[in-house]
Design a protein around this nucleic acid. Structure first.
Length: 418
RNA sequence: GCGGGUGUAGCUCAGUUGGUUAGAGCGCCAGUUUGUGGUACUGGAUGUCGUCGGUUCAAAUCCGAUCACUCGCCCCA
């Protein structure tokens, strides 16, 4: 039997899980203040849910999906991202009369990519979607929410916001034509990658990292000049909306999203602390998505953030809540200890029972699990009915009657929080 | 998918031009201290040297393959 981990997957232990939980808790907490409600969709969907929405030419669909057939021959895919599944849920759940609707979600996603720092084959995303508002206010709200979360995580000075407009369909088609005709002059100089894109998805050439491509693009027509009045108005208003909230941003005209369903606003919160994996939160507007899946025409905008990447950026913080250790020096005290532990746990304490060994060792073990208080239960205590309750920080110790230990500890905790 | 680097104890890493029984620090366990912890001192345990194969009298060391991690490309969260 192989004990190896599947490539790009990993086991996550207590500390990291605590760390993730903190991010998720903060994410949910802030998002709920903006009116977002949690939705959980399945991890598997029919493959076409992703293929038709993300675009056949996108990297994710063309080479990164975990596709398989189940025993009935259904073509299924482990979700590579969250938006398509939520759009599907919105349509199949017949939620159109509840618009506008705000979703928050988090969970594992799967992409068959080469693993790197901050990049895994199974990874976790947090994300939000806002459906049913075609107005730029939705874009401002969604970006502000992302900024709010990053700010509360203390990442202000580590991230920057890049924003661009992909315009509406009309603007995009017009620009695409201009860009193609410009790039056609450089056909023999463009990178192979970009040449393929020239046919399939020319806008993606804009974010090519190839040096020569970048040079060619310097004189290429600028997307922002091809926005029609409607698109220009939309983009201006969005930017003004961000300024109104004092959210700093940079217009990045070469920012293009990898999925077909985006239009108008595209944005990324990026960092330079994670090497090639610089996008922490990224998203945009996808007005055509739901109609393309067979639903009524419904505008939408959202973003997704990488939990692992966020985790790499924020420091781990020790738990404030420290356990109480009950030291069992004598086996005949088992019942007494389990009852005391039960009572303390009912009162909200984290309780750890340490059995056997001498007192030195037991206190030592208590220290190692970051315990604040220990209660010693040994021969003498069973006789006298008085139990030493010791504060390991101050080394102060009081002898307390069994029935009063819980209240005594509560009192100490209250004093401490004052 | 392409290119570079790395892989030795739980962790961080040494290990000479191939040469006996593979090392250090931290951590862990025990003792000093049989009812009171963090410090100190003393002692101890722990390795398929990533895996498989090859060269050699002899491989952690050289060669090949493979796996994983890592950095860059690509792409993305």
């Amino acid at each position: 039997m192989s004990l190896k981990l599947v490539r790009g997957t990993r086991d996550i232990y207590e500390k990291e899980n605590d760390h993730f939980r903190k991010i998720i808790t903060l994410f949910k907490n802030v998002s709920e203040r903006y009116g977002y409600k949690e939705i959980s969709t399945p991890i598997i969907e029919y493959s076409e849910v992703f293929e038709k929405t993300l675009g056949e030419s996108s990297d994710v669909v063309s080479k990164e999906m975990y596709k398989f057939q189940d025993r009935s021959g259904n073509n299924l895919t482990l979700r590579p991202e969250g938006t398509a599944g939520i759009a599907r849920a919105f349509i199949s759940g017949k939620m159109k009369n509840q618009l506008p609707i705000r979703f928050l979600y988090y969970g594992p996603m799967f992409r068959y990519e080469r693993p790197q720092k901050g990049r895994f084959r199974q990874f976790n995303q947090i994300g939000i979607e806002l459906l049913g508002i075609s107005d730029y206010q939705a874009d401002v709200e969604v970006i502000a929410l992302g900024y709010h979360i990053l700010k509360d995580l203390g990442l202000n000075d580590k991230i920057s916001l890049l924003i661009n407009s992909l315009g509406d369909l009309e603007s995009r088609e017009k620009y695409k034509k201009e860009l193609i005709s410009y790039l056609n002059n450089y056909k023999n100089e463009l990178s192979d990658e970009s040449l393929i894109r020239l046919d399939k998805n020319p806008l993606r050439i804009l974010d090519s990292k190839n040096k020569n491509d970048i040079k060619i693009l310097e004189n290429a027509p600028n997307f922002l000049n091809y926005l029609n009045d409607n698109s220009k108005f939309f983009f201006d208003k969005t930017c003004k909306g961000l300024e109104n909230l004092d959210i700093p941003f940079t217009i990045e005209t070469n920012l293009v999203r990898g999925f077909d369903y985006y239009c108008h606003t595209a944005f990324e919160f990026v960092t330079n602390e994670l090497g090639a994996q610089n996008a922490i939160i990224a998203g945009g507007r996808y007005d055509g998505l739901i109609s393309s899946m067979g639903g009524d025409d419904t505008p939408g905008i959202g973003w997704a953030g990488g939990l692992e990447r966020l985790g790499l950026l924020i420091p781990e913080v020790d738990d404030l809540k420290r356990p109480v250790c009950l030291l069992s020096i004598n086996n005949s005290s088992d019942n007494l200890i389990s009852k005391l532990a039960y009572e303390l746990r009912n009162s909200g304490f984290i309780v750890s029972v340490i059995r056997g060994g001498n007192i030195s060792k037991s206190i030592n073990k208590s220290n190692k699990i970051n315990s604040k208080y220990v209660v010693i239960v040994g021969e003498e205590e069973l006789k006298s009915g008085l139990f030493p309750v010791k504060d390991l920080d101050s080394s102060k110790q009081n002898n307390i009657k069994l029935g009063e230990i819980c209240n005594f500890l509560k009192g100490l905790e209250n004093d401490r929080s004052k």
